[in-house]
Design a protein around this nucleic acid. Structure first.
Length: 414
DNA sequence: TCTGGGGTCCTAGGACCC
DNA sequence: TCTGGGGTCCTAGGACCC
């Protein structure tokens, strides 16, 4: 296999949210801490290495974390703070190479080919500057493409560095279990295990042709992954969003329609105000319903027009709720998503609205958005939403991007 | 008192049109 | 009238990522 003569770095922050908390409160250093969401049913998002050593894992419920690690310090996440640090890091990395991009809030790729830096020099410089300027450590992986650079960060984590040359790429990939390869998830691992394939080397022995015959295109793509093939280019920051969504797991499963509708209104408002703030309009509304047994259903409907109006999205969500018999069983989670996005729409003025006062509603949304922007989320809102037990807007996620229209306007920010 | 939230991409069948 | 093919849109579901 041949690789381009490129030097790609992957810069991965170590326990990012936790590290930011420790940098701003040094008394937390060296202690078992975990950043969590705020709901009763929220989970661990990130934990310190001390907590990990005592069994705390990402995705664990708060209770389980406290059970395996008594005395663990649970800290509700502050997304704005993390986003600000992430943006600072992005700016710094741009100065190292203009061919760089944050891939998520805590991870970046750089192409340093032609910058005059060797991978080793760039890596050590980046590590020391990030430590100096932001008070946190990171791990750098280097390789001929993005996949290998990313996989190389797994070798010496935390606060490490590892480089893989093009000629070592295959044997490097062969050293991983399938489950540790970026892009191969639990479901694929299970499927391959049933075929007697456990490691990258097993799969390469199995052969690309056979895999493609058995699994089609996805088989071939996975074969290429385990062979260390991937794009070497740096992904440009995506400018256009494809969808906006919000969902909510309730403290207790709900079964009344009126309660569900209040939450649907709240979720519709969260989605549509985000769309309006970023000048998007969407056509497709999807309702997500999770049952107490965790089974999850999606129902969607495509409107004949693009909209960013709360009442259009809400009406659609309620129709999907009513039209699919959702009310018959208790609900653990509800979600509303808007997709089919574009920058032109009819605001809140469908033809019916022109007659029924949509233009008035449109002005009302603008006023509500302006007030909430100025004085804080939900300074003004729907009365039925105010009754909701779960006020939402609190759960954090590591995937929010430091810029653009990703959701940074959450609470618990600084 | 198990199991969050926000995204992207892909597949597959059916409807519908040419 | 019968037949088939291609293309696109819609809906539902799944896999995977951070």
């Amino acid at each position: 296999m041949r690789y381009d003569e490129r030097e790609i770095l992957c810069v991965d922050m170590d326990a990012f949210f936790v590290s930011v908390e420790q940098a701003s409160d040094p008394s937390l250093k060296g202690r078992p801490i975990a950043v969590v969401g705020s709901g009763e049913r929220s989970v661990v998002v990130t934990s310190s290495y001390e907590a990990r050593a005592r069994g705390v894992k990402t995705g664990m419920s708060r209770k389980d974390a406290q059970k395996v690690c008594p005395g663990v310090i649970l800290i509700p996440g502050r997304v704005r703070k993390y986003a600000a640090v992430s943006a600072g890091i992005a700016e710094f990395l741009q100065s190292v190479s203009p061919e760089s991009a944050m891939f998520s809030i805590d991870e970046a790729f750089l192409d340093i080919t032609g910058t005059g830096f060797s991978s080793d020099n760039a890596a050590y410089m980046i590590k020391s500057r990030i430590k100096q300027n932001f008070g946190i450590t990171c791990t750098v992986g280097a390789g001929p493409n993005r996949l290998i650079a990313k996989m190389a960060t797994h070798v010496n984590k935390p606060d490490g560095y590892y480089r893989v040359s093009g000629k070592d790429a295959l044997s490097f990939m062969d050293s991983f279990r399938l489950s540790d390869i970026w892009g191969i998830g639990r479901s694929s691992v299970r499927k391959f295990a049933s075929m007697g394939i456990f490691r990258a080397s097993d799969m390469r022995l199995f052969g690309e042709r056979r895999l493609e015959e058995m699994m089609g295109l996805p088989g071939r793509n996975i074969y290429r992954l385990v062979s260390g093939e991937s794009e070497s280019g740096i992904p440009k920051d995506r400018e256009e969003m494809k969808s906006f969504s919000h969902s909510m797991t309730f403290p207790k499963d709900i079964s009344s329609r009126s309660e569900a509708c209040a939450y649907l209104l709240q979720l519709s408002e969260m989605v549509s105000s985000r769309a309006r703030r970023n000048s998007y309009y969407g056509r497709a509304v999807t309702l997500t319903v999770r049952r107490p047994d965790m089974s999850t259903l999606n129902f969607s409907h495509t409107l004949s027009f693009k909209t960013s109006a709360t009442h259009h999205i809400y009406d659609c969500a309620v129709k999907l709720y009513d039209g699919n018999g959702v009310v018959k069983e208790p609900v653990r989670l509800l979600g509303v998503s808007l997709s089919g996005l574009g920058h032109r729409g009819i605001a809140s003025s469908s033809v019916e609205d022109m007659i029924t006062g949509g233009a008035v509603k449109n002005r009302l949304y603008r006023a509500i958005d302006a007030i909430n922007m100025k004085f804080g989320e939900r300074t003004i809102g729907y009365a039925s939403v105010m009754k909701c037990e779960r006020k939402g807007h609190r759960i954090i996620s590591p995937s929010w991007r430091p810029d653009g229209s990703r959701n940074l306007d959450m609470e618990n920010g600084s």
